[in-house]
């Protein structure tokens, strides 16, 4: 059940800045989060058919 496995079973690489230290694996996850957040803000969302205001039955007082 292991196809094309990329072996991560070796000591991790760590990036250290002052008191901060982060493994390459965790840093990849964190960078990915910022990337998808930025992409969600920037990438255009596909247009959909728009409808005029609904009838007043959907209105709540």
């Amino acid at each position: 059940m292991r196809f094309l496995e990329i072996n991560l079973n070796h000591p991790a690489h760590y990036f250290t800045f002052g008191p901060f230290s982060v493994s390459a694996g965790n840093l990849a996850i964190i960078i990915f989060m910022f990337l998808i957040f930025a992409a969600a803000l920037i990438l255009p969302f596909p247009d959909h058919d728009e409808h005029k205001p609904q009838s007043s039955s959907r209105e709540e007082s």
Partner: peptide, 22 residues
């Protein structure tokens, strides 16, 4: 609850961004 609140087939027009998929 109204049924169309629980399982809506329309959303306000401003719901138009990828931020809503998370």
């Amino acid at each position: 609850f109204e049924p169309e609140d629980l399982l809506p087939d329309h959303q306000p027009a401003y719901v138009s961004s990828w931020i809503y998929v998370f």
